[in-house]
């Protein structure tokens, strides 16, 4: 039987449990804010409203990735390697929402 092998890893802080529950309540609250805003802004139709919802989604994504997926405690290079490509995706999404609006004009 192999003995306990050496693993490359970054350290986890001792108050991890606390951080997990804090993150849960933040996500819970943000979801409620999302739904609240949806009903408050029902009669507004502007691209800004969509960017607001996407921004809130990104804030939630930040908390999930940083704490739940342990990204906050990883090496800088791993973080860059995952986060930079996703920035281009956000750019594409916003671009295509605007582009869709123009397509609607010529439909």
């Amino acid at each position: 039987m192999e003995h306990s092998e050496h693993l490359e890893h970054t350290e986890t802080p001792s108050n991890m449990k606390q951080q997990i529950w804090k993150t849960f309540w933040i996500l819970f609250a943000l979801t409620i804010v999302d739904i609240g805003l949806y009903f408050m802004l029902l009669s507004t139709h502007s691209m800004l409203k969509n960017f607001l919802f996407i921004a809130l989604g990104i804030v939630k994504a930040f908390y999930i990735v940083a704490v739940f997926m342990h990204m906050k405690f990883e090496r800088k290079w791993l973080v860059n390697f995952i986060v930079y490509p996703m920035l281009f995706v956000v750019f594409l999404v916003i671009l295509m929402l605007i582009e869709g609006d123009f397509t609607g004009l010529v439909r």
């Binding site: 869709g100 397509t103 609607g104 439909r107």
Partner: peptide, 16 residues
Amino acid sequence: SSLLTAYGFIRYSFPS
């Protein structure tokens, strides 16, 4: 992302 981008595009090619 490609699926959601497609959704966003098609969604906004129609009026609200």
